[in-house]
Amino acid sequence: MSHDHSHEEGSALSDTALRVKALESLLVEKGYVDPAALDQLIDIYENKVGPRNGAAVIARAWVDPEFKVRLLEDATNCIKEFGFEGRQGEHMEVKENTPQIHNMVVCTLCSCYPWPVLGLPPVWYKAAPYRSRAVSEPRAVLGEFGVKLGDDVEVRVWDSTAELRYLILPMRPENTEDLSEEELALLVSRDSMIGTGIALTEAPS
């Protein structure tokens, strides 16, 4: 685990860590929070909820055309069928990438992100460079992620300014007809569901 990502100074980090410890002790002593509840919250988002959830939904949409139609019309309930629901996924929308239209998601005002299907957002998603540039120069941003699109492809950026949360349905890679739904899910990267990437052609080793 790295402690030295670009926003941190070593001394500030230790000051912050001490401050947070002091705050937690106070809030526990006052009876406002249960330390076991805190541990559970961390465990859920560190180990149980993450982009594998969203990948299962996408793989289903790739193999089941009827499901895909429903998913695009009523994402919240279709995603709930997998048991993925609740906080920061109360109102889900799925947008489909095609050879003509590429969708990507940002939250310029804070860090809105579909937690039940993707987990907590990565640092870059919450940081100023992505939030400032995704709306004004999405093609340049996509280029930094290695995604090059021709000018004939329309780029649609979804700025999550309200309580709707967006999941992108990436294009299914070619030559994957023989793969099972479970195998296909391995090709669905987190970034492909944010729209800053495309689906993988090989499962990561």
């Binding site: 790295s2 860590a17 947070v20 937690e24 509840a37 541990d39 961390i42």
Partner: peptide, 14 residues
Amino acid sequence: PVFHGEWEERVFAL
């Protein structure tokens, strides 16, 4: 990683 250091975990959960 999901969190960078324990204090981030605690701030999130708090």
